[in-house]
Amino acid sequence: MKIENVIAVKDLTKRFGAFTAVDHISFEVGKGEIFGFLGANGAGKTTAMKMLIGISKPTSGEATVAGFDVRKHTEEVKKSIGYMSQGFSLYNDLTIQDNITFFGGIYGLKKTAIQEKSKLLIQDLGLEKMANKLLGALPLGWKQKVAFSVALLHNPKIIFLDEPTGGVDPITRRQFWEMIYREAHKGITVFVTTHYMDEAEYCDRVSIMVEGKIAALDTPKNLKEHYQVDSMNQVFLKLARNIE
């Protein structure tokens, strides 16, 4: 699997005053890997992710993303990655087409490239009739599918997905994962957080954060064997503690 590491993290740490949100975490993610990043609310997932996408400076430790140092080369990091979350994805009061054009521009794509790419994107999703409708008119699951495609417009090496499927209906949620599989198959690395434990099973490897540290990291199969349980949900319940 690990032919080439696209994410390498060593002793990455973030402190806020006396509180250590991320405490010396280390791991690597390979090209084309689907890496599940799990943990209870407050375990430090978001803080860790913010450092990896270059919007929060580590207190100590190192991380390279797509070969760029997240501390020194934040702009290169941002150009090499795609990002989507449930909290922020696209603009509801722009049309689907305008969203694509806008984000294509943000990513620095040329006009002709944006035209070609948006045509393909809309075709792939089967949204030809909806292209000039406001994004807000789409059900959440579809918005998330569009957001995922838009986050891939600039051909990033890695895509970061922060709870992309929260609240999405079960069928669309699965279609979303098929899109993830397809991209991973093409060699794009997927870094994903989720609270759906069945989705944890879809990942090649899963890490579980507990109180700022990585408490476990392995394939779902090995984790289940190690903790002698049948599902990732049980692995999670065994490991994760609540901290408030």
């Binding site: 209870a40 375990a43 609240g167 434990m197 319940l237 503690r241």
Partner: peptide, 14 residues
């Protein structure tokens, strides 16, 4: 109304 949306599995169980 959706008291557990976005909540991790441990807190949801509690």
């Amino acid at each position: 109304d959706e008291p557990t949306t976005g909540v991790d599995p441990v807190s949801r169980k509690e």
